Computed example of a mutant assay.
Amino acid sequence: MGAQEKTEEEAAPPAGKKQKTSKEIYFSVLPDRYEPLIEEVEEEREETPEERRKRKEEEKKRKKRKYKKYRKNVGKALRFSWRCLMAGLQNMASTYSTPLSAMATVVTEVNRGTGSKA
Rank of each mutant, 00 (worst) to 15 (best):
G2K: 10
G2S: 15
A3D: 15
Q4G: 07
E5R: 13
T7E: 14
E8I: 11
E8F: 11
E9T: 14
E9C: 05
A11R: 14
A12M: 12
A15Y: 05
A15E: 10
K18Q: 11
K20W: 04
I25K: 06
I25R: 05
I25T: 11
Y26P: 00
V29S: 00
V29H: 00
L30P: 01
D32A: 11
R33Q: 07
R33L: 07
E35P: 02
L37T: 01
L37H: 04
I38G: 00
I38H: 00
E42R: 07
E46F: 05
T48H: 08
T48P: 02
P49S: 13
E50D: 14
E50R: 09
E51S: 13
E51F: 04
K56L: 15
E59I: 06
E59H: 08
E59G: 03
K61E: 15
R62D: 14
K63F: 08
K63Y: 10
K63T: 12
K66L: 13
K68C: 04
R71E: 01
N73W: 00
N73Q: 12
V74E: 06
K76Y: 03
L78F: 04
F80C: 00
W82N: 02
R83P: 04
C84L: 12
A87M: 06
G88M: 05
Q90S: 08
N91L: 02
A93Y: 07
Y96C: 09
A102P: 00
V106E: 14
V110E: 07
R112W: 14
G113S: 12
G113A: 10
T114S: 04
G115E: 15
G115Y: 12
S116K: 13
K117A: 04
